[in-house]
């Protein structure tokens, strides 16, 4: 049986854990099923993949729900669930997942080197690259 070629592309704009998890979980499920995945981290999403921000983002939640931040963190920890960035790294290790960082946001945030970002980042690119890579996606999301 030939596998249907499927591609998931996500613009990861948000830097709070309640949005980073959905992006990471969808990526993991897709990678497990042999999907191609393209992730483009920009704005607060890019901020969250700075090496020194990965764990900070793990504790941050959208302001509308901030009263639940503590409870959510405790629940995640009690579930023994991987951290959002661990899940992404695992997904990358098992499938065809490409992770891009937005060059304009890097400049805005004063990030000079790709080495300041998580090791799972493949390349620093711009919007044109993402559009070209995402144009034949079966699912495209902005999170």
């Amino acid at each position: 049986m030939a596998e249907k070629k499927s591609k998931l592309s996500i613009i990861v704009w948000s830097g709070t854990v309640d949005k980073l998890y959905p992006a990471a979980i969808l990526t993991s499920a897709a990678a497990s099923g042999g999907w191609e995945v393209e992730l483009f981290f920009t704005f607060w999403g890019l901020n969250a993949i700075r090496k020194d921000m990965l764990d900070v983002a793990q504790r941050q939640i959208d302001r509308s729900y901030e009263q639940y931040a503590q409870a959510a963190a405790e629940a995640i920890s009690k579930m023994g669930f991987p951290k959002w960035y661990e899940l992404l790294a695992q997904a990358k290790g098992m499938g065809n997942v490409r992770i891009f960082a937005c060059s304009t946001t890097m400049e805005m945030f004063g990030i000079k080197e790709k080495t300041a970002l998580a090791d799972f980042v493949d390349e620093v690119v711009g919007a044109a690259t993402f559009l070209e890579r995402a144009k034949d996606s079966t699912i495209t999301l902005f999170i």
Binding site: I25, S28, A29, A31, S32, F81, L87, M94
Partner: peptide, 15 residues
């Protein structure tokens, strides 16, 4: 057992 989505699928895919 005791693991939640997407772990069961990820682990199945490896196993």
């Amino acid at each position: 057992r005791g693991k939640f989505c997407p772990i069961p699928v990820m682990e199945t895919s490896k196993a």
